[in-house]
């Protein structure tokens, strides 16, 4: 069901043959997980017309982690909402897992979102009156899972995000970083085809950001397709690929995914770069 796709870029990259089991980049065999074709979203009309997203073509292969960066107002959040079926394009197409979704009816779209898309926002949007575990159970219950299965899955996910011991706490009893990890667990509840995150570390300090990045790295290693909108270069740097937006269009597309799957460095970079060693100079 999953195959290892070595995506090695650059001149001096060496092939990654030591891939420790379980950490190889994995991807579903069929087509891109997400596809945008001529995607356009305008707001307002006449002289107040804004082209928030302006003719974006984008393929996100299954198993890829993609970071979207760019100045404030360039259309990142709008793009993410279009990709996740939270908003409708003015023009163009959105394909999710090989299925066109932009012209689905409201109910079909809502059902698809629930099952196939996991959202993570800057503000965690957890239910205040529900415990961490109940928050994580909710999407599975809404998608029709049995209470037992939902409970089981929630426990598993909270363990995965390192919060098993906080399962019964209310969001107000958790730190910002912990809340965000609960939100990520919730996003994963229905094994979504894609996880879409908008500034997931926007409110976090660097230690909490580290925790989230470790988590994303594990998701990536497990083959989860992930699109992250971020202003934080360090978050973007952990993705397989970075696209930058300018005025609603994609201005740059950079691959960073040499040498993936390597959890413990043995030297060498595989990025086609010069290696971290080049940052150090022994002369004088």
């Amino acid at each position: 069901m999953k195959r290892v796709v070595p995506r090695v870029m650059g001149r001096s990259s060496r092939s990654d043959t030591d891939g420790s089991p379980g950490w190889g980049p994995a991807a579903a065999a069929a087509g891109p997980a997400l596809r945008a074709v001529g995607l356009t979203r305008t707001y307002g009309e006449d002289e107040s017309l804004v082209w928030a997203v302006d003719g974006v073509d984008l393929d996100v292969p299954a198993g890829q982690t993609l970071a979207v960066t760019g100045p404030s107002g360039c259309g990142k959040s709008t793009l993410l909402q279009l990709l996740g079926g939270l908003d409708r394009p003015s023009e163009g197409e959105v394909w999710l897992g090989g299925r066109r979704i932009d012209h689905l009816g409201e109910r079909a779209l809502a059902r698809l979102r629930r099952r196939s898309v996991g959202f993570v926002f800057q503000a965690h949007h957890l239910m205040h009156e529900l415990s961490a575990a109940q928050n994580v159970e909710l999407p599975a219950l809404l998608a029709g899972a049995s209470p037992r299965a939902a409970r089981h899955r929630a426990a598993e996910l909270l363990h995965q995000v390192g919060l098993a011991h906080r399962a019964r706490h209310l969001p107000s009893e958790l730190s910002g970083g912990q809340r965000q990890r609960v939100a990520i667990a919730r996003a994963l509840a229905n094994d979504p085809l894609v996880v879409l995150a908008d500034e997931p570390t926007g409110n976090l300090d660097s230690a909490a950001t580290h925790d989230i990045l470790r988590l994303f790295d594990e998701l990536r290693a497990a083959g989860q397709t992930l699109v992250v909108v971020t202003h934080d270069e360090r978050v973007a740097a952990t993705a397989d690929r970075v696209v930058s937006m300018r005025d609603g269009t994609l201005a740059d597309d950079t691959r960073l995914d040499g040498n993936r799957g390597r959890r413990h460095g043995h030297g060498g970079t595989g990025l086609g770069g010069t290696g971290l060693g080049a940052l150090l100079s022994w002369e004088d």
Binding site: H210, R214, E233, R234, A237, T238, G265, G272, G275, L276
Partner: peptide, 12 residues
């Protein structure tokens, strides 16, 4: 960005 990718992954 490539250097940062290396540094950040190593940091993780």
């Amino acid at each position: 960005m490539r250097s940062l990718a290396e540094a950040q992954r190593a940091a993780l």
